[in-house]
């Protein structure tokens, strides 16, 4: 019963997100609208964490397996990819690492600035 109501809430928010995606002519997927809606519901207290936590945790733990099919789907564009395979490989490898390093370093620097201003180290 507990799980059923959690699934219903999560499905309802996913559905609402898809509905918004259908009506709003922007390239934003339903899942992103859904994330924002769920966040607002939690923030406003309409939905409590305990109302979605168990099923949410279960889904988040399973997340990696959801990417297996899209990775196998790369097979479908082997021929298209082979036309510019070197730029593709460099984009996916080198530039991904650069983005990771830049994001991490910049945000960490901004965090230290904020921490210094405050003098304390952790969130209160």
């Amino acid at each position: 019963m507990k799980h059923l109501s959690q699934i219903t809430i999560i499905a309802a928010v996913s559905f609402l997100g898809e509905l918004l995606h259908y009506f709003i002519p922007l390239p934003i997927p339903g899942s992103i609208y859904g994330l924002v809606i769920m966040f607002l519901l939690l923030l406003s207290g309409i939905v409590k964490v305990k109302h979605v936590k168990d099923v949410g945790d279960w889904l988040l733990t399973l997340m990696p397996i959801m990417f297996v099919a899209p990775i196998v789907g790369i097979m479908g564009s082997f021929t298209e990819c082979s036309k510019f395979i070197i730029p593709i490989i460099i984009t996916a490898t080198v530039s991904t690492l650069i983005v990771m390093i830049v994001t991490g370093t910049v945000s960490q620097a901004l965090i230290s600035l904020r921490d210094k201003k405050d003098g304390d180290r952790d969130v209160k």
Partner: peptide, 28 residues
């Protein structure tokens, strides 16, 4: 893959639980 939409929705849960960090480091 179908479950990816509800899973992305559920990413709001850890985000809400860690909202203190969102409030403290908006600029970062």
């Amino acid at each position: 893959q179908t479950m990816l939409t509800p899973t992305t929705v559920c990413l709001a849960i850890p985000l809400y639980e860690k909202i203190a960090y969102l409030k403290k480091y908006p600029l970062a």
